[in-house]
Design a protein around this nucleic acid. Structure first.
Length: 644
RNA sequence: GCCACCGUAGCUCAGUUGGCAGAGCAGAGGUUUUGUAAACCUCAGGUCGCAGGUUCGAGUCCUGUUGGUGGCUCCA
């Protein structure tokens, strides 16, 4: 007999070899019907695998993340079975679960597959699911496994097998389909009730563009049809928050084929919004001891040869701009740091001057591959809320911590609560991807990790994600469709000061090299506005939004009164307008709501008589009458609270 | 850059097997003077992304190209 400890702490004594499914049955049949997999001593295994020794056991259902992954992994196998039915001879690569569903990468050989084919594949999957075929696990020796896939002429599985040790290789079979797979899987296909194949895309084998491009089919499955419907509705709702849609609806920005792809045009309302964001940050930076600087949009090619950027990105960038007679070469500025280094060098610096913090809303241009461009989140011309801090080695950690505080203040003010802080370190196995000495990298990496620790900032560490010149701390936020974007970034750099031979005179009267910190709390204005827009669904905070108040006269008889009201509001720094169109008030309200204006003042005879206003708040009903002064106070207080 | 899909009026979209290019909103003119999410009438608005081709005839079929979308790769 062995002891099985359940999550509630209770212990069940069962015979050796008892399965999680047996134990679930023992608890209740209803539970057993929902068990997708089991977590035994922190390892997820098939619910029908025997347990051989004392263990903790958690039964995984659809409610558990691992339960979902297991089902989606099994769904990928189910899809593969359907694909083999319609396209015999295709070569299968990998088919893992992902955050929302699963995919399978397939080499379709000579078959042509189209999006319209997905429906019939879904149908086949449903048919196969109904057969409640069990997922059967089988150990196989490496030589048998190799023989099996040699027979199938599947180069991808053979390549995968190369990395596997003999004795650890398992296969799973359900129905007519067998696949090399570590597992675990759900007990049988019958758990898969609702199926939707969502997309078809190209994907390079092993994620390397030098390799063959395979066809990836994405899908998602659910144990109930209702959940699929709910999911699809959620996706539709998310699309309504898409910044590209909202940006158009709210007249914030546009693109023009004639101007060029990836080159955003900020419309008046968008430009004003951006200006308010910039002023908000400028104010915070002024308090933080930053000095604003301004540098040109181009710089001599030599500047970037010196910085090392030309060697790294020169070939894959916008190409140099030549002058007609002298043959000089300039680059469209891809970043601001070299310019700021030159500002540092305009005069001798003393340790007493440090830290020096140069800030600039610097517009930069980068050649991004056309397929990568995406709304305002990935563009070819954008403005960084950039700054470079030049400090002594001793000041690095403190300065870094101050920047973390600044980023967190911004995120808090704009209510970004679900962000990820990622420490990006170098991959020591690919040293040629980086420049600078190991000693400096070590120092920089340590500084970042310690600063984050001391700020109690929960971080995830990603190796190999560092910039080529230094490690960084990135703040990532998801967009409406769950895609992750890097916003704020802080980077320690020992490299540029060396390349530009930056120096300051220390208290010892000797020359020393400063350390640089690159930082951009928003990241870029474009991407930040995009993510902010999706985050708040267009309902910007009061302090940031364009028109805070729409004054809606019920008939033109009250226009004069409304104009006077607007004057009063403007005098108190409240932004608004009078909608004096010849339209019914219902329509004016509707349009104000659609334009996401926070407050509407409805003005008719009653208000004029009482020298009052009727207030309606966005997304809410009539708040009733009040006098103008109270309303002004209310708004000013609300703005003050938002920025506190 | 690669794979797949899409492009019809300012916007959102309809347009059968190839047979006279449509609607709603927005815009203009008029009527109406309006009470908490769309008043009414009239008008105007298009080289169907662009360029070729097939055809008696192309928004529709084919080729190329450009832009967008979803992924992959990349991201200073």
């Amino acid at each position: 007999m062995i002891d099985i400890t359940l999550p509630d702490g209770s212990i069940k004594q069962v015979e050796k070899g008892t399965t999680a499914m047996d134990i679930a049955m023992g608890i209740s049949e209803g539970l057993a019907r929902n068990v997708l997999a089991a977590k035994v001593n922190d390892e997820v295994i098939d619910a029908n695998r025997g347990i051989d020794s004392n263990a903790t056991l958690q039964l995984l259902t659809w409610r558990d993340t691992e339960g979902k992954s297991t089902m989606w992994h099994s769904s990928a196998h189910l899809m593969a079975e359907a694909l083999e039915f319609y396209y015999p001879g295709i070569k299968l690569a990998i088919g893992p679960p992902v955050k929302n569903g699963f995919y399978y990468d397939v080499d379709f050989m000579d078959y042509q597959i189209h999006e319209s084919d997905l429906v019939k594949i879904e149908q086949k999957m449903k048919e196969l699911a109904k057969q409640k075929n069990a997922y059967v696990r089988k150990d196989m020796s490496k030589s048998d496994a190799v023989a099996y896939f040699k027979n199938l002429e599947d180069p991808y599985k053979l390549e995968l097998l190369e990395d596997l040790e003999d004795g650890t290789i398992t296969f799973y079979t359900q129905g007519e389909f067998t696949d090399l797979c570590r597992g675990p899987h759900i007990p049988h296909t019958g758990f898969i009730k609702a199926i939707k194949l969502t997309a078809i895309a190209g994907a390079y084998w092993r994620g390397d563009e030098k390799n063959k491009q395979l066809t990836r089919i994405y899908g998602i499955t659910f144990p109930k049809n209702a959940e699929l419907t709910e999911y699809l509705e959620k996706v539709e709702l998310a699309k309504a928050r898409d910044h590209r849609k909202l940006g158009k609806e709210l007249d914030l920005f546009a693109f023009s084929q004639r101007v060029g792809q990836g080159l955003p045009l900020w419309l008046p309302k968008g430009a004003e919004l951006r200006e308010r964001l910039e002023n908000f940050l400028k104010r915070a930076q002024k308090i933080g001891g930053y000095d604003q600087v301004i540098t040109p949009h181009i710089g001599s090619k030599e500047l970037y040869v010196c910085s090392g950027h030309y060697a790294k990105y020169g070939e894959d960038s916008f190409q140099p701009i030549g002058t007609p007679h002298e043959g000089e070469e300039f680059l469209l500025k891809p970043m601001n740091c070299p310019h700021h280094c030159e500002i540092f060098k305009t005069r001798p610096r003393s340790y007493k001057d440090l830290p020096i913090r140069f800030a600039e809303f610097g517009t930069v241009y980068r050649y991004e591959q056309s397929g990568e461009l995406h709304g305002l989140t990935r563009v070819r011309g954008f403005t960084q809320d950039d700054a470079h801090i030049f400090c002594t080695q001793d000041q690095v950690k403190d300065e870094f911590k101050k920047v973390i505080d600044l980023v967190l203040y911004i995120f808090k003010t704009l209510k970004f609560e679900n962000f990820k802080a990622q420490v990006s370190l170098r991959d020591k196995d690919t040293p040629d991807k980086y420049i600078g000495s190991d000693a400096n990298w070590d120092k920089a990496e340590r500084a970042i990790i310690e600063a984050a620790d001391e700020k109690n900032l929960p971080t995830i560490v990603e190796t190999g994600e560092a910039a080529f010149y230094g490690p960084k701390l990135d703040f990532m936020v998801e967009d409406a469709l769950g895609r992750e974007w890097q916003l704020g970034t802080i980077q320690v750099d020992y490299n540029l000061p060396e390349r530009f031979e930056l120096e300051y005179t220390g208290s010892d009267n000797q020359k020393h090299r400063p350390v640089m910190i690159h930082r951009a709390p928003f990241g870029s204005m474009e991407r930040f506005v995009a993510v902010l827009l999706e985050h708040c669904g267009g309902d910007f905070p009061l302090w940031l939004t364009g028109d805070q108040v729409a004054i809606l006269p019920i008939s033109e008889k009250y226009n004069d009164y409304c104009e006077k009201l607007l004057q009063l509001l403007n005098n108190s720094d409240i932004r608004g307008f009078v909608d004096d169109r010849n339209e019914k008030v219902g329509k004016k309200i509707r349009e104000s709501e659609l334009k996401k204006i926070p407050f509407m003042l409805i003005i008719g005879e009653k208000e004029v008589e009482n020298n009052a206003i009727s207030v309606r708040q966005r997304g809410m009903d009539d708040l009733g009458q009040m006098d103008v002064d109270s309303f002004i106070q209310l708004l000013n207080k609300a703005v003050e609270d938002e920025l506190a």
